[in-house]
Amino acid sequence: MSREDFYENIRNSTRLNHFANLVNLAAVDGVIKPEEEKLLKRFSRKFDVSKADYERILENPASFPVHAINSKTQRLEFLFDLLLIIYTDHEMDQTEEFLIKKYAVGLGFSEEQAHVIINKSKKLFENNFSFDFYHRFIESDDN
């Protein structure tokens, strides 16, 4: 199944909430930087976010809840999207790390799983790679 087909199966509200989570992480430092805005626009197209919803979410992204996701692969893909936003500036600060762990738990990972996944992710996000590589790396037991 392609990534596009994968996201077509997600309920609209879940897509909007996930997009709001991306916006919330982008704005965590008080301003959405141009590179973050470019990525947000790409995600808004990916998730079929209307212009009206985009503006509404930009006004108050924290008002959208995080929804637990049943599929572990889908949770990882949502987490991957959030990490892409965080690493637009090539680093994760303490506030971003706190929020991403909170989102990981909200998506359905246990606190222990979230801790392990975030730590593995921090090692990876210093480089560019595909979601398939990320998925295999996170699922491996040797790291």
Results as ranks from 00 to 15, higher is better:
E55S: 14
Y134V: 00
L107F: 11
L22F: 04
R136G: 03
E112D: 13
E59L: 12
P61T: 08
L84Q: 15
I117R: 00
V116Y: 06
L22P: 06
D29E: 10
D5Q: 14
K51N: 12
Y134Q: 03
K41E: 13
N70Y: 11
I69V: 15
A20N: 06
R45S: 13
K123F: 10
H115E: 15
N9R: 14
L39Q: 09
I100P: 01
K101H: 06
D142R: 09
Y103A: 07
A68H: 09
E126V: 13
F43G: 02
V116Q: 09
F137W: 08
F98D: 12
R45E: 14
I57G: 04
S71A: 05
I10K: 06
N128P: 02
S44W: 05
R45T: 11
K38H: 05
D53S: 12
E111K: 13
Q74S: 11
D132R: 10
L79N: 03
I69F: 00
E91A: 13
N119K: 14
N24E: 14
F80Y: 15
T88E: 15
K51L: 10
K38S: 10
T73N: 10
L40I: 04
E97H: 08
Q74A: 12
F131Q: 02
I117G: 03
M92C: 10
K46I: 11
A26N: 05
K120V: 05
E96H: 07
E91T: 13
D89M: 07
F131H: 01
T14D: 13
N21D: 11
K120P: 01
K33A: 12
A20G: 06
D93N: 15
D89V: 02
N17R: 01
T14V: 14
Y103H: 11
E96P: 07
V49N: 04
E35F: 09
T95Y: 15
F78C: 04
F131D: 02
T73H: 06
I86M: 06
G106K: 04
R11H: 12
N17C: 13
E37T: 10
S2T: 14
F64T: 01
E55A: 15
E37V: 04
K72T: 10
A104I: 05
A52V: 13
D141S: 12
I138T: 02
I57M: 04
E111M: 09
H18Q: 12
D81T: 00
S110V: 02
F125K: 01
D29V: 00
H135S: 06
L82C: 13
D89T: 08
Y7I: 02
Q94N: 13
N60Q: 08
Q113Y: 05
L58P: 05
T88C: 08
K72N: 09
F80H: 09
L82I: 04
D53I: 04
S71E: 02
E111R: 12
F43T: 01
S44I: 07
F19S: 01
F109Q: 00
V49S: 01
G108F: 00
K72L: 05
F6D: 11
F125R: 01
D89A: 06
L82D: 04
D132L: 11
I138V: 09
A26L: 00
N70W: 04
H90Q: 15
